[in-house]
């Protein structure tokens, strides 16, 4: 011990990290970086395939003259047909070749549904709500991490519970979105909106992200139960909350880009 002149924490002797984080947290960061590479490759592939197809011409979208909140099922139903049942918008747009295999569909015309507002044209509103839910659950997660840093066991439980609820709400939204998309006739190999790769990429990327959200909720539940059992109070630190928090924020971070690429671009 007497030969030691500098503290070990400043060296790299195979012991603790010069980054001043524990082994577990450092490995969580390394995992997140590799996961970020995976998502980047999916989004890079999406960007390239998206732009290898021509976009829907703006004049074509404008010629539909869709108003925000307008009932598009009624508008595009053939005269004398029951406009409240069945799908009228998609067949009409296929007829007008707005939806065709030769051009990438505008997200405006595909993701324009909102729960309990059947037939109304409300583009982007539902995904904006999903984004808000995920950002809020990220905030409750970081508040849980902060509570853990103060050693406040009860507050950790409270914020973890809110985060889990937010996660389930997001998964519910995504299930609704997928149900809509599938009932419209979209499969990984064909869809009524545009080139087959449109729905294939949608299922692949939002499915991959949704699975990450699901895993995150499972991890959050494990941490929540451990905290209720007093595991972290006994251990003397709440670093597990921080590590799972890192993963949860990463999921939020990926959603920012999924939102940007699939719904905005």
């Amino acid at each position: 011990m007497s030969t030691q002149t500098i503290p070990k924490s400043r060296t790299w002797g195979g012991g603790n990290s010069p980054f001043n984080v524990s082994y577990g947290k450092l490995m969580m960061w390394v995992f997140l970086l590799s996961d970020a590479f995976t998502f980047s490759s999916l989004l890079i592939g999406y960007g390239a395939i998206r732009y290898s197809n021509p976009s829907t011409p703006i004049e074509q979208i404008e010629s539909l003259d869709l108003g925000f909140g307008e009932n598009i099922q009624e508008k595009f139903a053939a005269p004398g047909v029951d406009a409240h049942h069945g799908e009228h918008f998609i067949p009409a747009l296929r007829e007008l070749t707005v939806f065709s295999e030769h051009q990438w569909p505008s997200p405006d015309l595909v993701f324009n549904h909102f729960p309990f507002a059947h037939g109304l044209h409300l583009p982007l509103i539902f995904v904006s709500l999903m984004t808000l839910i995920l950002i809020l659950s990220s905030v409750t997660m970081v508040l849980g991490v902060e509570a853990g840093q103060r050693g406040d066991e009860k507050a950790v439980s409270k914020w973890m519970l809110y985060t889990i609820i937010g996660g389930f709400m997001f998964l519910g939204c995504q299930a609704w979105e997928w149900t809509n998309f599938i009932t419209a006739g979209a499969t990984p190999w064909a869809n009524p909106y545009g080139p087959p790769s449109f729905a294939a990429l949608f299922f692949l990327v939002t499915g991959f992200h949704g699975f990450h959200v699901f895993s995150g909720v499972v991890l959050n539940i494990i941490v929540y139960i451990n905290n209720l059992k007093g595991t972290y109070a006994k251990r003397g630190h709440y670093e597990m909350v921080e590590k799972v928090g890192l993963y949860w924020h990463f999921v939020d971070l990926v959603w920012v880009f999924v939102f940007t690429f699939f719904y905005l671009i």
Partner: peptide, 9 residues
């Protein structure tokens, strides 16, 4: 790659 994809077709 978004820019590059533009030229693929």
């Amino acid at each position: 790659m978004m820019y590059e994809g533009n030229f693929w077709g």
